[in-house]
């Protein structure tokens, strides 16, 4: 009797074990991209989102508050939307990243910079703008988000309009 029933419980155990491992594996998957957004890997998802608020959420998982300690420097009027010089500096401490968003672009997130310890929290770059839009710079400092926004008028779009 015992010899014939024994194999069954063991097989069941093995199957149960396999099933729970599979479940764990599936359960882990949705969390991986969220963790990746914490700066180490290329934030693919955030770059694909159209809406600025969604992109900020995907990149940082929280919202930013406006701060006068973030200084965004952008032209009032950009003649060529293909090349808009935009820079940001900040007096905030413990800055870990700086990101640029162009609200009216097909994809709001334009660029995100990781600022390691010892690097001055400031970046100058050139972005494309499809049309007149608000440009937002977000500075992540000591785990909090601070932002500055400025409207840039574009006379000729830079996204192939």
């Amino acid at each position: 009797m015992t010899t014939t029933t024994d194999p069954h419980p063991t097989r069941r155990l093995i199957l149960q074990g396999a099933a729970s491992v599979a479940l764990l594996g599936l359960g882990n998957l949705p969390f991986a991209p969220a963790l990746a957004a914490a700066n180490d890997k290329y934030p693919d998802e955030a770059f694909k989102l159209k809406n600025e608020a969604d992109a900020i959420k995907a990149l940082y998982g929280r919202t930013a508050e406006p701060s006068d300690k973030v200084k965004l420097d952008a032209p009032e009027i950009a003649e060529n939307g293909g090349v808009v010089p935009i820079s940001v500096t900040t007096t905030l401490d413990k800055v870990t990243s700086i990101s640029f968003f162009v609200a009216e672009n097909p994809n709001a997130l334009a660029a995100s910079y990781r600022i390691p310890d010892g690097t001055i929290p400031g970046v100058a770059n050139r972005l494309k703008m499809a049309k007149t839009s608000n440009v937002t710079a977000i500075v992540e400092a000591d785990g909090k988000l601070y932002s500055a926004t400025k409207e840039v008028k574009v006379t000729v779009g830079g996204c192939g309009g």
Binding site: A111, R114, P116, T119, I120, G122, V123, N125, L127, M129
Partner: peptide, 25 residues
């Protein structure tokens, strides 16, 4: 041997990109 600056870019960065930053050490 240390990363001093890392940029993640999307398509909205201009052609022939330019970037400026400063670091210590």
């Amino acid at each position: 041997g240390k990363d001093v600056f890392v940029a993640n870019w999307g398509t909205a960065v201009s052609k022939d990109p330019y970037v400026k930053f400063s670091f210590k050490g």
